[in-house]
Design a protein around this nucleic acid. Structure first.
Lengths: 343, 343
DNA sequence: CCTCCTCGTGGAATCGATTACACGAGGGAT
DNA sequence: ATCCCTCGTGTAATCGATTCCACGAGGAGG
């Protein structure tokens, strides 16, 4: 039971704990003979340093916290995966927290992570201004926002810019003859929630199209809200011809609602989504979507955070998203095909 | 910068650190007056106990490790979510590790988790006998297997039994007139990899059907392998009429391959999958799948592990999986519909 | 031969908590 | 009045590492 500690190693190697620590940390001046004996003892005893004790003493954990908005969202799991990968390559571990799009759960995880004395925090804030996040930022906790951010804070932001892609999407829809376009927005308290609506409205304006309030559904980035918003659209006296979901889960909900009504896509109504995921190639019909460079974002975010931690000065990063046209918005008159891009 | 410690609280409250610790841990005998002053000081200073120090001293972290096979697999993210939820309700935190179906990565994470002195480990082993896992189990690390397991170890297992559902699936396929049935298996080193093939073979035998080697594709539970196995099936002189993928990602790969060949489901070939996910309702066509009670499994696994940690004796849990018929295997002659179940 | 570095090493303080033990005050029983 | 508990509290040891400082040995330079 009593796990082996540095003292046991020292005893077996016939040296002091100081020397053991020195060889373990590649510190200066240890004789080859001593090093040899220590290494042998470590090996024989199967010694593993206690990271708790080490971190307590050195005041660093070589651990990063990542609070994502929703584990069930494939976009965020891909992000999480790339974050962990890059962190591992840089010698850090990641501890994840899943906010489930709930601010109080987000705060719970941030609190836990801070209590664990992580070296830095990667957050995709579920709301616009959790006091905890603000405090942590001001208290100097190394922090980087990824995907979403909170304005007015001196915290680097790593994200995708979807404005151009949204413009491309609207052009595509307009070219298909659609005029009544609706959007299912994310929470207004999140940057991605409001920005995507703004980008959509601006793009519509370029075509002389308005975005009436009735065509803005309030969602929360989860499937259920996409379903409800879509049902409301379909119940309108003049329903939209296109529904644009601000993330992939709300698009899933929209699919549910449209299918439940017995309508066909894109014949009866068109659908498009922000965030591209592998399943969109195989939905019925294949989904036109805006793809983010997710892996790049995750890696850039980790690099920014480790820069911050190790005393370098990171920059915010903005990468472009791009439109991937498939069949869910209708056949393109010029090409006569519903499929322009797939796996 | 110097974060506030228990000493600062003690000083401000005019008591000793022992007293502070006692009120914080709801220990016996502290006068109401002292408790009051301590609480006030904690509040005023924004004191948070250092979990590293606490854990070092008490030799417990109230943290569980969960090593999942693949974060990109919706089945495992759902599992992870329910595990975290139940653990939180029980007062534990979860640290995740993603093995990406790679044994060496799995071992990396187990090593890291053990180094962090987690109180217990939840594993879905990516291979049949990592020495690390065996050692940890024998060394008495509280451990529970979930979904997959390693035979011959005295470790509780929480999993779904798919045998009955697989039998139902084969009955369904047979009833539809299919006779040449193929399977894309998971790694033989995993229990789920070999069990699902065995269940499938046994069910076929009940109908007097054989499972030739050529109809067993070797996959690794990831999309790419599903694609390759399917391509091989399709290149056969006598290709199967049905492909049954042993998990949802390989089914995704199979869809890619089938689509790339320009074939139609279920007209040219039928497809079914183990693991049901929300997207399967909307694939083209909707996917017939075997659904596991994922949330139940996660919760049961956490309860088993905490039982183990807290000195109770947990039991292994086996829950039944069930068949969900949709359209991907063909129209049912008696019902004349392709959709029997959806969202 | 003496002095002065450098090198390898060990002793002991330290990180921030928990907790065994000791101790003094106050109250009840005799 | 004395004895003995109980209650509230503080002192100090402890968890397992890292690291400052001191010290002795040995080599180089004068």
């Amino acid at each position: 039971m009593a796990s082996v500690g540095i003292k046991d190693v020292a005893a077996r190697a016939g040296v002091s704990v100081a020397t053991v620590s020195r060889v373990l940390n590649a510190h200066a001046s240890v004789s080859p003979a001593a090093r040899e004996r220590v290494l042998a003892a470590v090996d024989a005893l199967g010694y593993r340093p206690n990271t708790l004790a080490r971190s307590l003493r050195t005041d660093q954990t070589r651990t990063l916290g990542l609070v994502i908005s929703d584990v069930l969202n494939p976009y965020f799991t891909e992000l999480a995966r790339s974050v962990e990968e890059e962190a591992r390559a840089l010698g850090y571990s990641i501890i994840f927290g899943n906010a489930d799009e709930r601010p109080e759960l987000q705060d719970h995880h941030i609190r836990t992570l801070l209590d664990r004395r992580i070296d830095g925090l990667l957050v995709s804030p579920a709301d616009g201004g959790s006091p905890l996040v603000l405090d942590a930022a001001r208290a100097g906790t190394p922090m980087v926002f990824v995907d979403r951010w909170i304005p007015g804070l001196d915290v680097p932001v790593v994200r995708a810019d979807g404005r151009a892609a949204v413009r491309d999407l609207v052009a595509h829809l307009y070219g298909l003859g659609h005029r009544r376009l609706a959007i299912i927005a994310g929470p207004a308290a999140t940057t991605t929630g409001s920005e995507r609506v703004a980008a959509f409205r601006d793009a519509l304006a370029e075509y002389g199209l308005a975005l009436p309030d009735a065509y803005i559904g309030q969602g929360d980035f989860q499937a259920g809200s996409g379903r409800r918003a879509t049902e409301r659209f379909l119940a309108l006296p003049e329903p939209p011809e296109v529904v644009f979901a601000a993330d992939n889960l709300m698009a899933l909900g929209a699919l549910d609602a449209i299918r439940a009504r017995g309508l066909r896509i894109p014949h009866d109504i068109a659908l498009a989504a922000f965030d591209d995921i592998p399943w969109f190639v195989h939905t019925d019909p294949p989904m036109t979507a805006i793809a983010q460079p997710t892996g790049e974002l995750g890696r850039a975010a980790v690099r920014a955070l480790t820069d911050l931690i190790e005393g370098r000065t990171p920059e915010s990063v903005t990468l472009p998203a791009r439109l991937v046209v498939r069949g869910s918005c209708g056949e393109h008159p010029t090409t006569g095909t519903t499929r322009r891009s797939d796996a």
